[in-house]
Design a binder for these strands. Structure first.
Lengths: 187, 187
DNA sequence: ACCTGAACACCGTTCAAGT
DNA sequence: ACCTGAACACCGTTCAAGT
């Protein structure tokens, strides 16, 4: 690849990252091209479709999140690790509209992120497993559930009319994860 | 209004309701017109824009949900009433893709539903107030929060890869609403 | 090899022509 | 008064022409 092409590609990814974070998945390709200072056609020389560019950007966001999650593996308190992981995902949704949309129902709309999703689920499963073993959470909490908690907390707060209320939703969810007392046991 | 026009309008709303439930907010106007057996232009004779047609349909769904919620006012157990209300909202999301999208971040995308939202929040506030007074939930739960729980439960399950798992998310959320023990009290 | 911008397809919206 | 379908604007995508 020629050096000017490599530079254009990188500029495009950065411009797309900014535009997607601000304006979400519906941002026109022309707006991204303008921001990068290239013609529309150049976008399609580097990416087969708008979706492929979106996937490149969002995959980078998920990779960053996964790295942060791996750092939490050294947190001694398993419930704190779990909560901080979910909080990191929620903060990313608050900061990046495109990720927020992908994390919500849009996930079906943007295929090609399956592998990143799996990586995230695997780390989440380790965190969930430690919390289960420590009896800090219900024994039926899976890694997938933990990933779902990120979306639940932010979308819940957002639907309640105040996205900044997400810590409240997160605390409700984390409280709700605690092991349930055996109600069917004899009193 | 001429009787044929009234019939067309009603056919359009029904066709739009079906198409939106199945295919979501991105369903083309042409698909709705086809399903109703009219020309595209007729849609815009009855509705100023696609959005106005969408609002008409979704407002009807929310009105139905609000009616179901009002029926729950006669439920004696306030926590059961709260849970059933949220469950009704979740089931609507599972059944209707357009409502699901509106309940998620799309709410900003479809304005004109503010009044319906308020009605729902008011009923939710009554249900929340009863549960608070009965000490069945934390004393900081608002009606808006309860509306947010509907989205949180469904979007959480959906993001966890299995929308049918929503009852699990709902049970976690409802458990999490229980009054927190005073941790700062002397042991 | 790469970039550009004109051209095309698709979809929401408008409107002149019909009934 | 209402309906129709051609026409227009917008945006994702393609590609012939340039460098």
């Amino acid at each position: 690849m020629r050096s000017d092409a490599a530079r254009n590609r990188e500029t495009l990814v950065r411009a797309a990252g900014d535009a997607l974070a601000e304006s979400g998945l519906d941002v026109p390709v022309a707006a991204i091209a303008d921001r990068a200072g290239v013609a529309k056609g150049t976008v399609f020389r580097h990416f087969a479709s708008k979706d492929e560019l979106v996937v490149t950007v969002v995959a980078g966001l998920i990779d960053d999140l996964a790295s942060r999650a791996e750092a939490l593996l050294s947190e001694p308190d398993p419930l704190v690790a779990l909560r901080d992981f979910v909080a990191a995902g929620v903060e990313l949704q608050a900061r990046d509209l495109a990720f927020c949309q992908v994390a919500a129902t849009a996930e079906q709309q943007v295929p090609g992120l399956g592998d990143r999703r799996e990586r995230l689920e695997q780390i989440a499963e380790v965190l969930a497993g430690r919390a289960r073993e420590a009896r800090a959470v219900r024994d039926d909490v899976t890694g997938r559930d933990v990933v779902g908690l990120m979306t639940a907390a932010y979308q819940g707060a957002s639907a309640a009319g105040d996205p900044s209320r997400w810590p409240w939703f997160l605390s409700v969810l984390v409280d709700g994860l605690r092991p349930r007392p055996h109600r069917d046991a004899p009193r």
